[in-house]
Amino acid sequence: MDIPYVVQPREDTGLFNAKVGIWLFLASEVMLFGALFSSYILLRVGSMNWLYGEAKDLNVWLGTANTAVLITSSITMVMAWASLKLNEFGKFKAYMGATILLGLVFMVIKAFEYNAKFHHGHFPASHTFYAIYFTLTGLHALHVLGGMVVNSFYWGPGSKMWKTDPVRFTNRVEIGGLF
């Protein structure tokens, strides 16, 4: 017997297996980052000497640019999936490539930010603010990296599946995109 509902949704739940799986995983991510944010709030509220405003030495423009990059990459990801739904494989390749490239841009900007911090003598050990800054953005960067690896697989070797099993491939991209 083969495993059912790999591609087609099950009647009573209306979902295919991987959809359930990825949302469960995302639920656990909510708890992971929820705990990290809780820690952040507690340490910040409980701190006697928190860093405010200028003391934080954050580059607002780089941060804004990177947010914009992330937002753009999220729309190209959705577009890549929508292109598959519309049966336009060429467009999928373009959008997916853009998504991966934007991820790379994000990492490069992040590296510049980190580098500037290190040059100014700010390390995780310097202050709890920087500890949280580096830990949270570092973990986020790891997630971006993970997403880039998965997306590169879909863009490169994984895209062969489009020929053999297009629906499953579309689903796969949706799952990767959700993450």
């Binding site: 656990s28 991510e29 708890m31 992971l32 980052f33 929820g34 705990a35 990290l36 820690s39 390390f123 995780p124 050990a125 709890t128 500890a131 580096f134 830990t135 973990l139």
Partner: peptide, 18 residues
């Protein structure tokens, strides 16, 4: 996951001096 978060923070305490 919250323990995973805590473990990462403790790892930073042990290794990165936070």
């Amino acid at each position: 996951p919250p323990l995973e978060a805590a473990a990462i923070l403790q790892l930073m305490d042990n290794v990165a001096g936070t």
